[in-house]
Amino acid sequence: MKNTFIGIVRSLGSIKLALILFVVIIVASLVGALLPEELQPKVYYSGWFIALLVLFGLNTLVCTAARLGLGKKKLGSGLTHLSVLVILLGAMVSFFFSVRGVLELEEGRSKDAIVVSQEDKAQCSFHRLGFSVRLDDFSMSWYAVRPEKYDIGVLVKDKDVRRYYSLAPGSRQEVADTGYTVEVLDYMPDFSLTEDMKPAGRSEMPNNPAVLIRIKRGAGVEDRWVFSRHPAMGLSKDPNIKFKFMWMPVVKEFRSTVTVIDASRNKTFSRWTKVNAPFSYRGYTFYQSGYDEENPSYTSLEVVRDPGVAFVFAGFILLNAGLIIMFYPKLGFSRSKR
């Protein structure tokens, strides 16, 4: 019995098993990556893949235990293998105990629960936060970049012709089979009208991008402003031809300012979040995740409570330290011999 146990432990700590597990994990990960996105969780969160990682953890544990020591050589290797265990432990804690959901808010509205999607994303449930979050303001800003070419969709009603053109400023384009010719004359990133109703640009920021298009058919000429965010806006002499100006300015930042109201602790305070700048409260971290182009008062926040993160990051620090201690003294070895 004792011999069998020792045999199992020895097998678990063998380098051959480690190499086999490396290869199996590589193949399984590759298969998962090649599958369509919706099928990937069936590999990475499946029982057999988790069992594989647990076996890998056991193999690492026995290997680490067998090579414990504080010598220069053993310290680096020990830290590296210990780090793998800490990372795997963190991943398990995340898998079993993390909560991840979405908080969708409109300005002035508050919510105290997040929507948690089930693994197959077909069903969802609510998770109560124990406090509520109100959206006070959602703001977006864009880079002041002018388009290199203007992407224009054209519809000619009487010929039932739809065309799409990417026009350089000043270049004329014949709309085939319709008799129309179009030309982009001007672009304003922030279109507005003066008091005497003349077009004027307020700034270089793409707050209301618009192009001035010259339309020719026979002897008729019309200059028409077309707006990317308000396609129906603008005066047209010739209703037979319609345009769509497709210009998506590059988003610089989107930011939500919220008030957290925690009645149970008698706390109310304001916070803001943008991409790469989350905020945390009572173990939950709030990440700016989405917006709605059609609804400027809407925001979507990803809300996460993950007690595994601390383990994983501690593991990362150990891993990098272990590898540097293990490998870098070996570099330049031949130089010191010279």
Partner: peptide, 29 residues
């Protein structure tokens, strides 16, 4: 984790970087 709220998504680029790391880990072992 700071940008999207998770330290690992099994995104193809992440997965392939892990595979690369594992291949070199096999080399070193």
């Amino acid at each position: 984790n700071v940008a999207w709220g998770s330290y690992w998504f099994w995104d193809p680029k992440e997965t392939c970087s892990l595979i690369t790391w594992l291949v070199y880990a096999v080399y070193l072992h």
